[in-house]
Design a protein around this nucleic acid. Structure first.
Lengths: 238, 238
DNA sequence: CGTAGTCTTGAATGACCTCAAACGCTGTGG
DNA sequence: CCACAGCGTTTGAGGTCATTCAAGACTACG
């Protein structure tokens, strides 16, 4: 377990974009890396935020739980993305939990370290602002979707979002390359696993997707887009 | 229209908290103030973002419109709060529109100016990060609520949120001190004005709220909280 | 080969929306 | 001062989308 990771891993991380070499070295010097097995809970909702995190490899899902145990999947994130940073600016408690959905490699900095780094290298703060801004826009868009769209369209949007950020081309179409259950999709779209299952079954019957347990392949993305955008069903024969 | 406003107005703005006197002067020097009559659209969704904004006085609502015209009220904000800053970090287009719901006094900075200010005074960027972080948490919470709760609870939550940020004590209870229609509430909670009207009527019958056109007073806040938290029955303690 | 977790599917219920009509303020102009 | 138009609001009736309840099938894994 390397205490100071290879500086190369920070390349391509939006959070550290456009940093001078020495600043980067500074950042690396204070970082800690960790190997995290699939299924591990990286931090829990309500925990004292001890660190800011970033993913070097793997996939993490962010889940928020309500007072009565209702869960919502707020975000899936992949290599190069930061997470758990919100807590630093929100009274020091994580507002959600982070779960490794695949084996992961994580890098993190203690909160005081992270703060100091931002003070020393304002560029980092600007980058964080930019990332946060973008995500904020995303969440607002989701809020609108969930407020105004019916379930089928929401599921379509969720799948397309996942494809965009974790899609892998395969011969039969585009596959989402980490374990994804109906329950997950339900928690992303504010519905039940039953409804998700029914919807996916229907789409499967129409040849739009192909799914097995915890695994989804979109075979006809354009038709899914049509559903998401509520376009007048493209001319198709059945 | 004063070109450079009184530095005093920046006091109490979270965005400029903990800034040294000279930095504050720098900020003020580049600011522009504007008087905005009630009902004015301050900026439109999709517009090129020319400026970052902050409210000195009045109330503004932020509304996002979907491709089919469905509207969602993302936020109400009052004196001292910044807005329209997201756009600066999101490809330069406003992701929503801002409407003055009362007469307002606004202060703004051109985007390049704002960026330069943040470069010169990193504290501002840190503050912005903190504000954005907090709001981000709010939106995520709303997303969970809207995903998992039934309409009645969502409306209760919306009202309580409004009370918290724009509530004014009156002898009959707490009043929300800007024009607020059923339509607005519907667009905040992802429902229809009809359902909001029915719900409010029911509450009115139980003496929990009292409302007239575009005007709501919460007479028994604790009972509204009980509804929002889904507590057993109106078994209340004083 | 059993067990646990995931997924499918049917049927019944209900929360909420849609459609439709009417009511009551508020401001305006005759 | 009254009539009228405009807007926000109220309320009913009917329909439907999605949840809830229930049972069973499939898959992975020990």
């Amino acid at each position: 377990m390397p205490h100071s990771p290879d500086p190369a891993v920070l390349h391509g991380m939006p959070l550290f974009k456009a940093l001078e070499r020495e600043a980067l070295a500074d950042v690396v010097r204070h970082a800690q890396t960790r190997l995290i097995p699939k299924g591990t809970r990286i931090f829990s909702q309500g925990d004292e935020a001890l660190a800011g995190h970033a993913l070097i490899d793997g996939q993490v899902k962010i889940v928020q739980t309500g007072p009565d145990g209702q869960q919502v999947v707020l975000h899936f994130l992949g290599a190069g993305e930061m997470f758990g940073t919100l807590a630093m600016f929100m009274g020091g408690k994580y507002p959600a939990e982070a779960l490794a959905v695949t084996d992961c490699v994580e890098i993190h900095w203690s909160v005081p370290t992270m703060m100091a780094l931002m003070e020393r290298h304002p560029r980092i703060a600007l980058n964080a602002l930019s990332i946060l801004g973008r995500r904020f826009g995303e969440v607002q868009k989701r809020l609108r979707e969930i407020s105004t769209e019916r379930v089928e369209r929401r599921i379509a949007h969720a799948l397309l979002r996942l494809v965009r950020q974790a899609g892998r081309r395969v011969e039969t179409g585009v596959e989402i390359d980490f374990p994804l259950s109906r329950q997950d999709l339900a928690e992303m779209t504010g519905t039940t696993l039953h409804t998700v299952s029914r919807t996916l079954s229907a789409w499967e019957g129409q040849g739009i997707v192909a799914s097995t347990r915890q695994h989804v392949v979109i075979t006809e993305p354009h038709r899914l887009v049509a559903i998401a955008e509520d376009l007048p069903a493209p001319k198709q024969k059945d």
